[in-house]
Nucleic acid binder design. Structure first.
Lengths: 210, 210
DNA sequence: AATATATGTGAGTCTCTCTTACTTTGTTTC
DNA sequence: GAAACAAAGTAAGAGAGACTCACATATATT
């Protein structure tokens, strides 16, 4: 849904949102590398310097796109864990949702991971990212011994790693051509998540050798 | 080891390799985003247009860095699977080696994954990357039912996903501060790999529902 | 030695990021 | 309701980088 300005006058009315919109479109066409503030401004119908009233620099505009990405991802996670009954099924569904998100909202995924943003510099983004993790944290806790939060974090790290990796491989074309590749990657990551959960006992005894 | 030119004359003697060297140093300092052909040329002591005699454009120079990265990674994989006795231990060691590579050779890792290179456009890179996979493929086969290559590929995908994900998380600072973070991430990814292997039976029955 | 080829240079074009000074519009305050 | 202020936009330009092209110089070939 495109962002409509209130008026067609000197003041745009909703420039930041419109810029994020245009930027995501542009990233979709040219990748993060090919993205430019100038072109985003042109497409939004404002001058090249206008974006700098709202975003300190190029990266900050990309960070705003990344925040949008977090919101979208959070919604997908919430939907994924809503239906299944067992925690394992919920996490498998979440993994698959993550991979599907990468495929279906590639510009968002690229803004989030392909831009090399220093997240420490964008507190709003760090917050949004933390909120995403929060969404699935309680599910992971149910699979941790004694519902221990630290163990849950370890499990979640591993799961995140799996999902992130599968998404990267999918976008890299290592699962074949879309759209079949997407379904395949989702199945695979869900299966891998289940495998990880099945064998998870090893995870929580890591540092103690024997 | 710095690349030494044969002479200090008009012709450099080994400009491509020297440029790759300088580029990796530059990527280390400024990240892939901050990398510029101009600065790499300056550091190598040649004119700004000299690199274009050897590399068609910026991305092709980065791709050459990525090829170097593949060679380094391949060596580390070979060393990692040499010592352990069981296939599971070998793969766990390979995962850890991958994560350690990301931490210790970050510029290479960034060139390989942070530049958003379209690998289809760089056959030499695709070849080098395939050779890396080849190095661990036989190990994965020993853990696949009936040594089936397709199943081995699935397992390897999942493992790659795990390692890639853990590396990303480590570089993102999600394991804490170096150098402890590196060891921690290596332990975790090794444990996760073992967990994945333990529960791997689920992996190979994916597409058949029931 | 003469020629061809590979490699490096300098100057120039184009685009991009970001800044500065200025303009226009909307809001507040008396 | 007008004056003052703040917010949001513009135009012009400095500085840097990607890439090109005509030219220079070294090396290889014959």
């Amino acid at each position: 849904m495109p962002v409509a300005p209130r008026k067609r006058s000197y003041h745009h009315g909703n420039l930041p949102a419109a810029l994020v919109d245009a930027s995501l479109g542009l990233i979709g066409e040219r990748g993060v590398q090919g993205f430019s503030v100038a072109e985003a401004a042109r497409r939004t119908g404002v001058s090249i310097s206008a974006p700098y009233r709202h975003f300190a620099d190029r990266d900050e505009l990309i960070a705003a796109c990344a925040v949008t990405a977090c919101e979208e991802l959070q919604g997908r996670f919430a939907a994924a864990i809503a239906a299944p009954e067992s925690p394992a099924d919920q996490l498998a569904a979440a993994s698959a949702a993550y991979v599907r998100f990468a495929a279906e909202r590639r510009p968002m995924f690229d803004a989030l991971f392909g831009a090399g943003l220093d997240k420490a510099r964008y507190p709003q983004l760090a917050e949004a990212a933390a909120a995403v993790v929060e969404t699935v944290f309680d599910v992971a806790r149910e699979l941790a011994p004694g519902r221990d939060p630290d163990s849950a974090a370890i499990l979640l790290e591993a799961m995140t790693g799996l999902a992130q990796g599968h998404a990267t491989l999918l976008l890299d074309g290592r699962f074949g051509e879309p759209p079949d590749a997407v379904d395949l990657a989702c199945e695979r990551v869900a299966a891998a998540t289940r495998a990880l959960i099945r064998g998870r006992s090893v995870l929580f005894s890591g540092s103690v050798p024997g």
